[in-house]
């Protein structure tokens, strides 16, 4: 037997080096985790009341919709693509839902309908990207214009939602104790994340997503359904954006065509900070969750600080983006 884990004639350092190399792939996620812990520790050390469980839970409550959107984005980015339309699809979803509910449609019809609209939009973009080999950046840019345009055309103003189901979903709290609770949106978001993580780790579709991100040409030659999978991830991202939109409308209790401006940037930032390689093929949905938490924690700290202004969020996110992109660059360079 030729044992390659310790090949004859090669110094053992090589084998150790291989293990290091393997671990290096986890560096971005571990870095995010460390960052999160440090940030939390800093928060607890400096601000009164920061250690309340509810502070952490509120991060989930306030970012449930982002978590769902970022989960869809994770699939897209894992294939090496990008989806700029997510914010606009969220806005479109809130607008359509609010308009239809306002017109007296039952929630049982509106909910599936808005999810279907987002899914179809995603399907369309995926099809254009695959069949006509249009760059994802451009195809989803067109999707963004389209979704935002339709939303604005439907209504330029904010529409309040008074539907019973919607308000119930918005107000329902799952309580763990006095003052310790999460919203239903958090539950939905966590279910989405769990399903997503399962799909990525345990299904052929999920593994094909990673394969395409590693090398689309190889995946094709290995006989994998590259086209179908690629279309599917944009469809999935469309669905997640629509679901994110629904959660957003729970959160805001209204629909507004100018909602979620720039959410695509937040979602991309969360994915990147969560350690997913922007060129695709490496990363975990768990990392994206961490990324969303980092974004949420930055905001929380700035709120607690009181003297720091909100724009610091953007600067810090920019700095983190830079740091993680450079880190990714360094990691991939060495593994190659």
């Amino acid at each position: 037997m030729i044992d390659v884990t310790a090949p004859p004639g090669t110094p053992p350092a090589k084998a150790r080096n291989r293990v290091l190399k393997q671990n290096r792939r986890h560096v971005p996620v571990l870095a995010t985790l460390a960052l999160l812990i440090i940030m939390y520790a800093v928060g607890v050390a400096n601000y009164r009341g920061f250690s309340d469980t509810q502070v952490v839970l509120n991060i989930f409550v306030d970012n449930a919709f982002l978590l769902v959107v970022a989960a869809g984005m994770t699939f897209v980015i894992l294939t090496g693509g990008i989806d700029l339309s997510v914010g606009a699809v969220v806005a479109l979803t809130t607008t359509v839902a609010a308009t239809l509910l306002h017109a007296g449609w039952p929630a049982a019809v509106v909910l599936p309908l808005v999810l279907l609209i987002g899914t179809v939009l995603g399907l369309g973009m995926g099809a254009v990207i695959h069949f006509f080999q249009v760059e994802p950046f451009i195809a989803t840019l067109a999707g963004m214009f389209l979704a935002r345009g339709i939303a604005l055309l439907i209504n330029r103003n904010s529409i309040p939602i008074t539907d019973g189901f919607w308000t119930a979903m918005a107000e329902e709290r799952i309580r763990f104790g006095p003052g310790v609770f999460i919203s239903t949106s958090v539950v939905i978001a966590l279910i989405v994340v769990l399903i997503g993580a399962y799909v990525l780790a345990y299904t052929r579709f999920g593994r094909t997503v990673y394969a395409i991100g590693g090398s689309a040409d190889s995946a094709l030659l290995m006989g994998l359904p590259v086209g179908r999978t690629r279309i599917a991830v944009y469809t999935l991202s469309g669905f997640c954006s629509a679901l994110g939109g629904v959660l957003y409308s729970f959160y805001m209790s209204s629909g507004y065509s100018l909602n979620a401006q720039g959410m695509e940037l937040d979602a991309i930032a969360a994915v990147v900070i969560g350690g997913v390689l922007l060129t695709g093929g490496s990363g975990y949905l768990f990392g994206t969750v961490l990324g969303v938490l980092v974004l949420g924690l930055i905001q929380t700290i700035i709120t607690f600080q009181g003297t720091l202004s909100s724009w610091w969020t953007r600067i810090v996110v920019g700095v983190l983006l830079f740091a993680f992109i450079v880190l990714q660059r360094a990691v991939t360079r060495r593994t190659r």
Binding site: I82, F137, L265, I268, A269, L278, T279, S309, S310, W311, W312, T313, R314, I315, V316, V317, G318, V319, L321, F322, I325, V326, R329
Partner: peptide, 26 residues
């Protein structure tokens, strides 16, 4: 550094408006 242009300029796109607000103190 060799970062893809779309990603490289995304950084300033995100951080830039924060910097502008920093200059004007919001």
């Amino acid at each position: 550094i060799g970062i893809q242009p779309i990603i490289a300029t995304l950084i300033l796109m995100v951080a830039g408006r924060g910097i502008a607000q920093l200059i004007t103190d919001g």
